[in-house]
Amino acid sequence: MPKAIKLFVLYVDTFNRWVGRFAMQLLFVMGAVLLWSTLSRLFFNAPVNWALEMSQFLLSAYYLLGGAYAMQNDAHVRMDLFYSRLLARKRAVTDAFTIFCVIFFLGVLLYGGFSSTSYALQYNQKNYSAWSPPLWPIKIVMTFGVFLMLLQTISTFFKNVAEATGRSIQ
């Protein structure tokens, strides 16, 4: 494989590993937010109106920033009828072919993410709730997560091609 592809795979995999491990920590933050909400309601009789939305934002950031890391570790759910019976090289060929559907889907999703984020920034879009938070921060995180997933998908494609042709990507 060309050196540029090897460097692309190395940098994308390394960056997504760091982002994915950071995203794992968001579950603790979300737990703390929900715990604070429960404690404030039970002990202080003061319900917190922002906790539910904040936990939804944190969960969205968690799975969108962690998606590329999950793909890197082959942790996504896969419907398997014949796939596991194939040899490793044939699986790599199958993955290299079907990954174009994923790249197309992520491209459309990224386009929509840019459009939605641009709208949220331009008009200072807020959520219709009692808390009424601005939506641009979570939309930026979501669009960034889709972008990282697209980069990881391309990296995975290069790894599949390398495996299918019997070359090393490392």
Rank of each mutant, 00 (worst) to 15 (best):
A61T: 12
L52S: 11
M30Y: 00
R167W: 00
T14L: 10
Y83C: 06
S84P: 00
A92E: 06
L81F: 05
F157R: 06
G107L: 04
T156A: 13
D95I: 03
A164D: 08
G67N: 11
L150C: 03
Y123A: 13
I140W: 05
K6R: 15
L148N: 06
G107M: 03
T117N: 01
V108L: 10
Q122Y: 08
Y62R: 10
M79N: 10
F43C: 03
Y111N: 06
G66R: 09
P137V: 04
F44G: 01
L110E: 06
Q25W: 03
H76G: 12
T38W: 01
N45W: 00
A130K: 14
F144V: 09
L34P: 11
A46K: 13
G113N: 03
T165G: 13
Y83K: 11
Y123M: 11
L81S: 09
F82E: 09
Y128V: 14
V33K: 14
S118G: 15
G31Y: 01
R167T: 14
L106M: 12
Q125N: 12
Q152H: 06
A61E: 09
V48L: 12
R89D: 13
R167V: 02
V161G: 08
R78C: 09
L35E: 04
P134W: 03
L109H: 02
G112W: 00
S168I: 00
F158P: 02
L42T: 14
Q56R: 15
P2E: 14
F22S: 12
M30L: 11
K6P: 06
W18C: 14
F44T: 02
Q72K: 15
T98Q: 05
V48K: 10
Q72M: 08
P133C: 09
W131C: 15
A70P: 00
V102W: 05
N16M: 07
F147H: 03
F22T: 03
L27T: 13
F97T: 14
M142F: 07
V33H: 10
W131S: 14
M71I: 06
V12W: 04
R91T: 07
A68R: 12
L86F: 09
W50D: 02
T14D: 10
A92T: 12
Y111F: 06
L65W: 04
F57Y: 15
K139I: 00
T153M: 02
G107T: 08
